[in-house]
Amino acid sequence: MIRYVLKRTLSLVISLAVASVVIFLVIEVAPGDPAAFMLGLNAQPDTVAALRTELGLDMSNPERYLAWVGGMLTGDFGTSYTYRTPVGEMIADRLWVSLPLALYALALSTLIAFPAGIYAAARRGKPGDMAVMGATQLGVAVPNFWFAMMLVLILSINLRWFSAGGFPGWEVGIFPAMKALTLPAIALALPQAAILARVMRSSLIDILGEDFMRTARAKGLTRRQALWRHGVRNALIPVLTIMGLQFSFLLAGGIIIEQVFFLPGLGRLIFQAISARDLIVVESVVMLLVFSVVLVNFLVDLTYAAVDPRLRNRT
């Protein structure tokens, strides 16, 4: 088990190193001079050159790469070209919105999907299963921003239970802040829950057909006992994989939802940075997202091993 964790950790470090090189090459070596862009079309060449020196753009590529990575390792993400504020602070601000939102949405989606998927699998082919499958079909098909608008229309504008958008900040207290995140979290969670419920159902149906489920019944377990004691844990592996992918998406992929609810999240930050050619911000956010994806995969790998003993002493 310890060896497995060490191996996964090593693979995590290697993935990050490779990703940082790729991101640096793609973004920094791509054409387009941020200094010229920031100063506009009529800038004097010597002004541009001065800004290039200030931004560190005149160093060689390896030097800039090392400076960038070294900075990130010490917590210094550089200074935004356009806002002239430390990138680290900008990202931290946004992360305080996006990370709780993603976790909130993931929790909701799990809470909906697990019972729905297990219920449908246990009643395969019966009306209950068909109802769940119909609902998830709808959940997969309808885009999350439509859910978002409906939620705003009904719960904010008509019933006035929630505010229609914006984020008051964590200073006002956990409860009001969470309340502000509730509608976006629901809108993000519904389509994810639909997918997750379908994965849970089909995975569990596969497991229910396994020989060891029949063995469990032959021991005298009821259908329900066999399902919970022997089925669910075995069905978790594909479900965990999907959850890992979904979390990475939720962290930055909620850009439309952030727009709908006026949330200052990571998605909007990266969108603005790309429009303004603020390469240092783009680089850092992308690196952060890569880091989160790799980290989540690492955690999913560890959970696999916790769930399935067969994986513990494998390569």
Binding site: D211, F212, T215, A218, T222, R233, N234, D308, P309, R310
Partner: peptide
Amino acid sequence: EARMCALRGNEVGMVFQEPMTALNPV
């Protein structure tokens, strides 16, 4: 079914063909 669950494993035991898949792997 309820009475049958009490009988299975208690009064009637069963062994299957495929030992590789008849046990819960986890």
